[in-house]
Nucleic acid binder design. Structure first.
Length: 435
RNA sequence: GGAGAGAUGGCUGAGUGGUCGAAAGCGCUCCCCUGCUAAGGGAGUAUAGGUUAACGCCUAUCGAGGGUUCGAAUCCCUCUCUCUCCGCCA
């Protein structure tokens, strides 16, 4: 959520920055400014009336104490009238407030000044590349073929169980997935200093609001119902990312500044309805309704949050480097960034069988956008309450990492070589060509 | 799922309709006093919003939301969470 004070002090700046993400957002600025002043006006009026009522009520109390009952009764009649005015004005103020809040919750974060302005993903800029595309002396197969021939993923039965977009990992495939999860967590915990957490895989509405998923993207979430109780529907949602629970860990808290920074990492499955998204219906592991991911979350003081973002990006890169997978880093343009982000870097890993780069990580600094939505604060060195910056990054998404790994390390004989760091996790240096 | 108890400021804990935003204690901060040792005295110590040049003033908040009332921490309703016991269960 954007700071309402900024709208009062510098609406032009907000309008200009929002316009880089879409004119429809910039168009809301005037509404916000107008509603804010309406709200304050109504509020002031209500508060004045309340002050009057409180004072009069105290007088009544005093009169009652002195047994001056007639005077007290007269006063009561007078105050009752004030009460009616208050409820009327209060209701009006409440309506304005709801309207204002609704608009604010649907406005995205302001992009950082350094973010390239763009209209589509075509306008993202490549920052760097690491490694090289591996050379093959045979035609590299796509992961779907490899998975089928080695029995790593049973696409047909996954679909039989839950529909398209659901995967049944099996045998070496299931073991590789588990090995990767373990490997990623261990690296972030032991080498990068993150605290591992294992969060609930369902969260309440407020958590989804807090990270900016809701209200705008409610159509993309899986809503849960308890048994046949329709009343319970909407109390919980399957998490689209571990960011939803983990970034909310300290929601509505006031942290001490010495408690910062907080570094969390978490494994979780991620559930995405992907309503209307391209590629959901197609076979394979690139876009699915459920995938595993190891997520990194940081809660830090605003000063230095961009250094923390670079470090986080480096932590995610380290995974790919250690597995010797070629990748590139993109900085997303204003239009392609997620809702709450002020700056986002995507890491795309090379998948030879696809002949394409796959997004496996997205590292964002949301600045105080989320902490404001979730009312998370910390006391700074001067004892003032401030909103910390919240960063999130995938470290990394699993299904696509799985794809890149098996497509990169496929051998002419159909087996898959296992990179050295994973060998102890998988207890082999090679997934054999056939069982 | 059933029965019961509870939720008050950083913590402990009073407070059942009228200067209660809230006693007391602990903790913490500052000041004073004292130089023989975890001593004593005093002051301060929630959050948000509005208003003011500022001191300040006003409003809201005693788990959350609603209601009764001139007035609610206190009465009523709904919800959430915690604890105890029983049942069921991975």
């Amino acid at each position: 959520m954007l700071d309402i004070r900024q709208f009062r002090e510098n609406p032009d700046h907000i309008r200009e920055r929002l316009a880089t993400r879409g004119e429809e957002f910039a168009a809301k600025v005037d509404d916000v400014v107008r509603l804010d002043s309406e709200r304050r006006e109504a509020n002031t009026a209500v508060e004045e009336l309340k002050a009057k009522r409180n004072a009069a009520s105290k007088e009544i109390g005093a009169l009652m104490g002195q047994k001056k009952l007639d005077e007290a009764e007269a006063k009561k009649a007078e105050v009752r009238d004030i009460g009616d005015q208050i409820s009327e004005l209060d209701a009006k103020a409440g309506q304005v407030d709801t309207k204002l809040r609704d608009i604010l919750l649907r406005l995205p974060n302001l992009p950082h000044a350094d973010v390239p302005v763009g209209a589509t993903e075509e306008d993202n800029t490549e920052i760097s590349q690491w490694g090289e595309k591996p050379a093959f002396d045979f035609e590299p197969k796509p992961h779907t073929e490899i998975c089928e021939s080695l029995g790593l993923v049973d696409f047909a039965r996954g679909a039989k169980l839950s529909g398209s977009g659901f995967l049944l990992y099996s045998g070496w495939g299931a073991r590789l997935e588990r090995a990767l999860i373990q490997y990623l967590l261990d690296m972030h915990v032991h080498e990068h200093g993150y605290t591992e957490v294992s969060p609930p895989f369902m969260v309440g509405y407020d958590c989804m609001i807090g990270v900016g998923q809701f209200p705008k993207f409610e159509d993309q979430a899986y809503m849960v119902q308890e048994g046949l109780d329709e009343e319970s529907r909407g109390k919980l949602y399957l998490i689209p990312t571990a960011e939803a629970p983990v970034a909310n860990i300290h929601r509505e808290e006031i942290l001490k500044n010495e408690e910062l920074p907080k570094y969390y990492c978490a494994y979780s499955p991620c559930f995405r309805a992907e309503a209307g998204a391209a590629g959901v219906g197609t076979r394979g592991m690139i876009r699915v309704h459920q995938f595993d991911k190891v997520e990194l979350i940081k809660v830090v003081e605003p000063e230095g949050s961009y250094d923390e973002l670079q470090k986080m990006l480096g932590n995610a890169e380290k995974i790919l480097q250690s597995l010797n997978l070629h990748y590139r880093i993109l900085q997303l343009c204003t239009a392609d960034m997620s809702f709450g982000s002020a700056t986002t870097y995507d890491i795309e890993v090379w998948a030879p069988g696809q002949g394409d780069y796959l997004e496996v990580s997205s590292c964002s600094n949301c600045e105080d956008y989320q902490s404001r939505r979730m009312n998370l604060r910390y006391k700074d060195a001067d004892g003032k309450n401030r909103h910390p910056h919240i960063l999130n990054g995938s470290g990394t998404a699993l299904a696509r990492l799985f794809v890149a790994l098996i497509e990169t390390y496929q051998q002419p004989d159909g087996s898959i070589a296992i990179p050295e760091p994973l060998q102890s996790y998988l207890r082999t240096d090679r997934i054999p060509a056939s069982e």
